[in-house]
Design a binder for these strands. Structure first.
Lengths: 224, 224
DNA sequence: TGTGCAATTAAAATATATTTTTTGATGAAA
DNA sequence: TTTCATCAAAAAATATATTTTAATTGCACA
């Protein structure tokens, strides 16, 4: 364990949110969570406060916490920003990255490629989600800017939440593995423009896929 | 008052941090703050948790909270990122902004120009800091992207902390008022390239000033 | 005089108890 | 039936108490 109870709760809650274990706008009851994690309400409130600052949770005075909402508009806005920052990281990383960086990229890609994408229930497997996050983080890592990485990480986290909503719709009609491989190859070849183009396409494609799933889900809800 | 105690504490603490009322790396004792604000320790912990997620405060398990450190390296990194995002906001705002936006910019600038920059003790006056923050926010506002604004606000907040460190060194050898006026004029003329150039110069100049003050302060500390 | 160890103090972390606020239900009056 | 007011239950917010952990002090011993 990495230390305090509140820290553990924060990490687990965050992971659960990113994995889509709670629905958007769902109420997060303090005492319920408290008994679920078997810690005091104080620890829960503290964890929720941090998640609120991250934007993964919303807080309304006197009426508690909820899972942050999702929307097509937000997804589009988020993706635009992500394209911006991810390509910027990539440019810098390709310019600055040394052999050690190349090595971590290759390693991260190997792990990603070798990890089965789907869990038995049709959702993304946790192992793949982790490998995927690590691969993208590895690409950006060598950008040499802590602030860039920080903003990147924030945006990536928010995107993960959407990613999970696109479980079923996604795979099959898309070759994410190829996209990742080409991305790696462009990076190793230090072909900045190609890498940027591929990254942009990759993120845009992800957005389109999620958007379709999101609209389908909304339509289903409205019909009911 | 805008509601709960924890909310109030969060806001006040944040304002104090941005105003430089606490020194970087200073210990933030929970119970001390509790009695200072005359609220329970829980409320303090909650506020600190949020500030931690914002990066204004650092938390170390089992040994509490401290004011986040500052450094020349961080300031440079922060400014690079700020140039990036502020100019991006500006481009979009100039493209999208309507008359209502122009109006708020003019209003914000008028207020800024009419507010005395220095308090009697040589630091920036709180009123000026507020008017300054509002002016820059107004410029970016019309960018039309919530995520852009969110990242911008985060970066701006961190910069405010540095700004205060540059109190004495700054004014006199710099005509910030002119820079702001020119910025407004370029924006009203919808001269995107000029506005971007001015904004970049404005932020870089701010960094240089702060950096000089920071180095001077460090040298003084080392000499002691 | 310095070094290591125990005892003490201080502070953080956690749990529990209390107060306040909101929400949902029930029933009376229009 | 609909609307409004009142009451009861639930949950959030806050305060207090307890436990755990880290820091400090003082003392014995080299």
């Amino acid at each position: 364990m990495s230390g305090s109870a509140t820290q553990t709760v924060y990490e687990q809650l965050r992971a659960s949110l990113l994995a889509g274990l709670y629905r958007p706008e769902e109420k997060l009851k303090i005492s319920e969570l408290g008994s679920a994690f078997s810690v005091s309400t104080g620890a829960i409130r503290e964890a929720l406060a941090r998640l609120t600052a991250e934007g993964l949770v919303t807080a309304t005075p006197q009426r508690g916490f909820r899972v942050a909402p999702v929307s097509v508009a937000d997804l589009r806005d988020l993706t635009d920003m992500r394209v911006e920052i991810e390509t910027k990281c990539l440019r810098h990383a390709i310019a600055n990255g040394d052999l050690a960086w190349e090595t971590t990229v290759v390693a991260a890609h190997h792990r990603l490629a070798a990890t089965p994408i789907a869990a038995h229930d049709g959702s993304f497997s946790p192992a793949w989600m982790l490998a995927h996050a690590d691969f993208h983080a590895a690409l950006a890592q060598a950008c040499g800017s802590a602030w860039m990485m920080r903003v990147r990480d924030l945006l990536f986290a928010h995107n993960e939440r959407y990613l999970d909503l696109a479980r079923k719709t996604d795979r099959g009609n898309r070759d994410a593995a190829r996209e990742h491989r080409e991305l790696m190859e462009a990076v190793l070849a230090r072909d900045t423009e190609r890498a940027v183009t591929l990254m942009t396409a990759h993120l845009d494609k992800t957005r389109d896929t999620i958007e379709a799933a999101l609209l389908a889900a909304t339509a289903m809800n409205e019909a009911r």
